[in-house]
Amino acid sequence: MAARGGKYGKVLRFREGLYLKVNESITGKPYRTDVDIILEGNIFVQAKAGPISLPSDDKEAEQIFQAKWLPLIHAYKTKGASKIIFAFGDYVDERLVGYLENAAAKVGVQVEVIKLPYPGG
């Protein structure tokens, strides 16, 4: 199990997946991956256990960003997010991080990316 502390709580990695144990969670439920966690102050957390790879071809990577990640940021924004925390428990493509930060800034919401140490990383 790996853990990383922070202002909002701890990100814990178990065999079954990535969990976030948050200090101020509204619901306080145990979370598996790919779920929304809402902290006080409308801070949304998206936890992802598996690796996030994008195609090496920039064009295809942009297409995936446009089809999946951009709508996600927009959905969080319309749900009233002031900040989105993406917690990645494995490898994440740096291009995705750049696009997420850029898109969030355009939409008018803060974004923070937490990258956990992972085996072989």
Partner: peptide
Amino acid sequence: LCDEPLPWNIIFGPPER
């Protein structure tokens, strides 16, 4: 999505990204 129109967009590739 979530009762709001999704923003249409232009994505600039590298190096601008």
